[in-house]
Every structure is written in C-alpha cells, then in structure tokens.
Design a binder for these strands. Structure first.
Lengths: 205, 205
DNA sequence: GGCGGGCGATGACATATGTCCTGCCGCGGT
DNA sequence: ACCGCGGCAGGACATATGTCATCGCCCGCC
C-alpha cells in the first residue's frame, strides 16, 4: 500500500455510532477519516474544506437531510463520491439517493465488513446497492404525492390538529383537509396517521 | 494485565452498530466480547450459556425489551452486571432501568471512549449514570399511567382506530375511549397522538 | 385554443374522537 | 363496614376528522 489513502468524510448524528465507524474505518490501512460531522448542514462546508474522496452520509440528520446534502455535493464537490448509510432501507430513499447522484446505498443492518468494502468499491467507480432493495425500489413506483400533500402529512405528525397544520402552512382548514384526504386516498389508508406511516415507509417524505 | 479479562454480552439489534461496538470493545486488552445477540428474547439464554460479567443491553429490541431482559438477568444470572445502552435518555427509561437492577445507563450520543470506561466502572461496583439525566429522572416523577392506559396508548400507534384498539385489547370501545381520555388528561395533551408522543418522551411506555 | 393538473377554497355531510356522567365489580386499607 | 381506586362498560353530547362536489386561478402541453 504505497499510494495515497482514501479520504473519507463521515456524517452521522449519533455520537457513539460516529465514533465507532470512524475508528473502524481508520483501522483499515488504505482509509483515512478526514472529517466527522454530526449535522446535515455541516456536510458541505466540511467537504469543501477537506476534499474527501468519499462522503459517508446518514439520511436522518439534524439541520439538513443527507439526501439533500448529497445533491449539494454533486454540484459543489463533484469529485466526491457519495455513499448513503441509513437505518431504513425504504424504497423511496434509495430512489431519491440515486436521483441525488449517490454512488452507493447501505443499510445499517448489514455486517460491518461491508462498510470498508463499499467505500473501496464506490471509489473504484462501482455503484453499491443491495440488489433486493433495488428491485423493491423499482417495483414500488414513484412518489404519487404532490408537494403540498407531503407538507400536510409531515405537519400532521405528533398529533397536530387540522387547525395547527393550517396555521403552520398558511392554508385554510378546508384545504388542509382536502390534501390529507387525497394523501389518504393515494396511500390506500384509513386516516392521516396511517397515511403518514405508509408514506414514511415508502420513503416519500 | 495478567488477570482474567472482562466477559461482555452485547445485545443490539442494528447489525453495523453491534459489529462496531464488538470490535471496539474487543480492542481493549482487558475486555472480551463473549456473546452477541440481536433480539431481546435471546439475551437470557446467551447469558446462561456464556456467563458474562457485564451485559450491555439496548432498550428497543425485537422480541423483548432490554429493560425486561435486565429484570430477567437480575433473577436468573445475578452475578451479571447490567449496563443499559440506549438511543434515548428518557427519564422514565432511567427510572425503570434502575428499578430493574441495572448498574449503569449510557446514551448512544456520548463519545465512544465512555463505553469501555463504563464497562470497567460497572464491574468495579460503581453505578454509572449521567448526573444531568439522573436529576431529570427524579424531578420528572413516576409514571402516572395505569397499565391499561399504557396498553391503550401503545395500541393506538400507527393510526389504529378505537375499534382496532378495542379488538386488540378485548375491550369495549367505550372503555378504550375512557382510557385514552384519561391518558390524554394525565399527559396534559389534546389527543391520543400527542399523549402517545409525550408518554414515549417520558419513557412511560 | 382547449385540456389536464396542481393549488387554494367553501359548504354539506357522515363518521370518528374526546369528554363527562353513571353504574357495577373487586380489592386493599382504616 | 366503609371508602377509594382501578378495571370495565354504556349513553349522551360536542367537536374533530374525512369525504365529496363545486368553484376559480394559473401553468404547461398538444
């Protein structure tokens, strides 16, 4: 191993997970973790400052979604390959990751050995995706929800009432009810909580 | 380090996290990971088989909660010290962990270095708890919900309707509404979803 | 120019939800 | 023996939610 080591940026909000992953990757003698961030809105700055070869991004992050950050990197740091690392293998997540230009998609359920291997394969130009997940994503079809329907669903989390949602979105209550109703229809569910759950499961939010 | 190494049982459902923690602990030359399990209902058997000194348990596990498993260990493997490792520092979780006889309570947000240190301190007889969390747990007071109110709340997740809950709990719909209503009152919230959220936040479920 | 589709809104309506009150049982304390 | 409290149930009532039909506006498309 005479060549330059692979420079990795690590974005993960859970401290223990972040530290453990950094240590693991650091133990590989061809990999070097050059930056660690805990928030999504710190990813771009860190990438600009440290010019990593691979960015390992969680999706659920405070500040900015890892998927959105991946899109940022595509534009502002095009040489950096993006590897998404997430708890949930939601079909919609994978789809959005690919649309954002990610080079790979890993679920945290897999064995640790996968991780360093995926970093190397991604850098070598391969696209790393679990085949089963890939077929699931394709068979699931695209997100049928309109932007406002998604907004209404997101805002209806935590038991917000229709009035709350209307206030948050600056809409009339009737309009909110209509959006929720159509979201319920499109998700083939019975009420907003089920619709929210299903939309999340599909990765549509 | 001439003595026998500390035998650790690791219970964590997320594969990558479990593998990373096992590797980290294994790197310490006075610690040995003798068993790894991914499900809560595998903890007791593994502990009986491997007789660990310390059991490192996640709370949210498939099969059986880490807190319940801790109570099992207290009775069936009393020599094994229990260290709870969880994503959420909910006051009620800490309270229940202590009632279940846990010797320590760690949140996954902390730095990785804490982990091995906590294992050693727990084995030395110390009780390992974040002081800020401890005071929060005490000031929060005990769980005001009755068993049935908790049941009704838990069953009301995912947008289940009153009829669904009644069926799942073998109760009349009126009874379910009464339980939910009183749970809403005790949590000082406006509807079941808020009550569910608040109860979860407090660690009452 | 017509058409579809998303956005925003309204009103009417049926159903679901949450509240309150009453009542019955059993249990544990005083 | 009495009381309080939790479990369980029913009824009555007000409010919240979900559905549907209808409308206007704007935009992109053929």
């Amino acid at each position: 191993m005479t060549g330059r080591r692979i420079r990795v940026l690590l974005a993960e909000d859970q401290g223990m997970m972040r530290g453990a992953l950094a240590l693991l990757l650091g133990m590989e003698d061809d990999i070097e973790v050059v930056a660690q961030v805990a928030a999504g809105d710190a990813i771009l700055d860190a990438a600009l400052a440290h010019r990593p070869d691979v960015a390992l991004l969680d999706i659920e992050l405070p500040g900015r979604s890892g998927l959105d950050a991946a899109a940022d990197l595509r534009v502002r740091v095009p040489d950096c390959r993006v590897l998404i690392l997430t708890t949930f293998g939601r079909p919609g997540y994978l789809r959005r990751a690919m649309e954002a230009g990610a080079a790979g998609f890993l679920v945290k359920d897999g064995p640790v050995e996968e991780l360093a291997a995926a970093v190397r394969r991604v850098l070598a130009g391969e696209t790393v995706v679990d085949p089963a997940l890939a077929t699931a994503a394709l068979s699931a079809g695209p997100n049928p929800l309109t932007a406002r329907e998604s907004d209404a669903l997101k805002a209806s989390a935590d038991g917000a009432t229709v009035a709350d949602i209307a206030a948050r979105l600056h809409l009339s209550e009737s309009t909110v009810r209509n959006y929720l109703s159509s979201a319920i229809g499109k998700t083939a569910t019975r009420n907003r909580m089920e619709a929210l759950r299903e939309a999340r499961r599909q990765g549509w939010l």
